[in-house]
Simulated assay, not measured.
Amino acid sequence: MAIRRTVIIVDDLNGEPLDNGGESLSFLVDGRAYEIDLTSANAAAFREAIAPYVAAGRELQGPPRTRKPRAKRS
Protein backbone atom coordinates (compact mmCIF):
# COMPACT_ATOMS: atom_id res chain seq x y z
CA MET A 1 0.00 0.00 0.00
CA ALA A 2 1.30 3.46 -0.90
CA ILE A 3 0.48 6.73 0.79
CA ARG A 4 0.76 10.02 -1.04
CA ARG A 5 0.61 13.24 0.94
CA THR A 6 0.24 16.57 -0.73
CA VAL A 7 1.03 19.92 0.83
CA ILE A 8 -0.71 22.86 -0.79
CA ILE A 9 0.47 26.33 0.19
CA VAL A 10 -2.35 28.84 -0.04
CA ASP A 11 -2.63 32.61 0.02
CA ASP A 12 -3.14 33.68 3.63
CA LEU A 13 -5.69 36.32 2.59
CA ASN A 14 -7.97 34.53 0.16
CA GLY A 15 -7.05 30.84 0.40
CA GLU A 16 -6.08 30.59 -3.28
CA PRO A 17 -3.43 27.90 -3.94
CA LEU A 18 0.03 29.24 -4.77
CA ASP A 19 0.57 26.60 -7.48
CA ASN A 20 1.09 29.14 -10.25
CA GLY A 21 3.30 31.62 -8.48
CA GLY A 22 3.27 33.48 -5.25
CA GLU A 23 5.72 34.15 -2.51
CA SER A 24 6.31 34.37 1.21
CA LEU A 25 6.87 37.92 2.43
CA SER A 26 8.50 38.79 5.74
CA PHE A 27 7.99 42.13 7.46
CA LEU A 28 8.58 43.74 10.83
CA VAL A 29 6.12 46.02 12.65
CA ASP A 30 6.49 47.34 16.19
CA GLY A 31 9.43 45.02 16.80
CA ARG A 32 7.43 41.91 15.84
CA ALA A 33 8.34 39.83 12.78
CA TYR A 34 5.65 38.41 10.49
CA GLU A 35 5.58 36.20 7.42
CA ILE A 36 2.68 35.87 5.00
CA ASP A 37 2.16 33.68 1.91
CA LEU A 38 0.59 35.61 -0.96
CA THR A 39 -0.25 35.15 -4.62
CA SER A 40 1.74 37.32 -7.00
CA ALA A 41 -1.20 39.73 -7.30
CA ASN A 42 -1.62 40.07 -3.52
CA ALA A 43 2.15 40.46 -3.05
CA ALA A 44 2.09 43.33 -5.54
CA ALA A 45 -0.90 44.89 -3.72
CA PHE A 46 0.95 44.56 -0.39
CA ARG A 47 4.02 46.32 -1.79
CA GLU A 48 1.85 49.06 -3.30
CA ALA A 49 0.04 49.58 0.01
CA ILE A 50 3.24 49.99 2.03
CA ALA A 51 5.16 51.94 -0.66
CA PRO A 52 4.53 55.40 0.91
CA TYR A 53 5.80 54.17 4.29
CA VAL A 54 8.86 52.50 2.76
CA ALA A 55 9.64 55.70 0.83
CA ALA A 56 9.44 57.82 3.99
CA GLY A 57 11.35 55.34 6.17
CA ARG A 58 15.03 54.67 6.72
CA GLU A 59 16.57 51.32 5.80
CA LEU A 60 18.21 49.60 8.75
CA GLN A 61 21.56 47.88 8.43
CA GLY A 62 21.86 44.54 10.20
CA PRO A 63 19.35 43.05 12.61
CA PRO A 64 16.79 45.31 14.31
CA ARG A 65 18.16 47.00 17.38
CA THR A 66 16.50 47.01 20.77
CA ARG A 67 17.33 49.38 23.56
CA LYS A 68 18.52 48.01 26.85
CA PRO A 69 17.63 49.88 30.04
CA ARG A 70 20.50 51.96 31.35
CA ALA A 71 22.01 50.94 34.66
CA LYS A 72 21.38 53.40 37.47
CA ARG A 73 24.43 55.17 38.83
CA SER A 74 24.88 55.16 42.55
Rank of each mutant, 00 (worst) to 15 (best):
R58H: 05
S24C: 09
A45I: 00
Y53R: 12
D30N: 07
I9V: 15
F27P: 00
G15N: 13
A41C: 14
A43V: 12
T66M: 08
M1E: 10
N14V: 02
A45S: 09
R5N: 15
V29F: 11
D12F: 02
L18W: 14
D11R: 06
A51Y: 01
E48R: 05
E59K: 03
A49P: 01
E16N: 14
A55P: 12
A41S: 14
L38A: 04
F46N: 02
D37G: 15
N20I: 02
P52H: 00
E59G: 11
S26D: 07
L18K: 14
P17Y: 02
V54M: 10
R4P: 11
I50A: 03
R4Y: 05
P64E: 01
V10R: 15
L38I: 12
Q61H: 11
E59H: 09
E16W: 13
G15Y: 03
N42E: 02
D30H: 11
Y53C: 06
N14F: 05
I8L: 05
G21E: 01
I9P: 13
P17Q: 05
S40A: 12
I3K: 11
G15V: 03
E59M: 08
E48N: 07
I50F: 11
T6A: 13
N42A: 02
R73C: 08
R58F: 07
R4K: 06
N14P: 01
S74H: 10
L28V: 11
V54R: 06
P63H: 06
E23K: 13
A43G: 13
I36M: 03
K72H: 08
S40D: 12
V10D: 15
T6W: 01
A45L: 03
I50C: 06
K68D: 05
V29M: 09
R32P: 05
P63F: 12
E16Q: 15
A43H: 07
A43T: 05
A43E: 07
Y34W: 07
P64F: 01
R4I: 06
T6P: 06
I8C: 06
E23Y: 12
A71E: 08
R67V: 06
S26L: 08
G62R: 03
L18Q: 14
V7D: 15
D37P: 11
V29C: 13
I50K: 00
A45C: 02
G22V: 11
A71L: 12
A33W: 04
S26G: 10
R4F: 07
R4E: 09
N20P: 00
I50D: 02
A49K: 10
V29N: 10
A49N: 13
D37H: 13
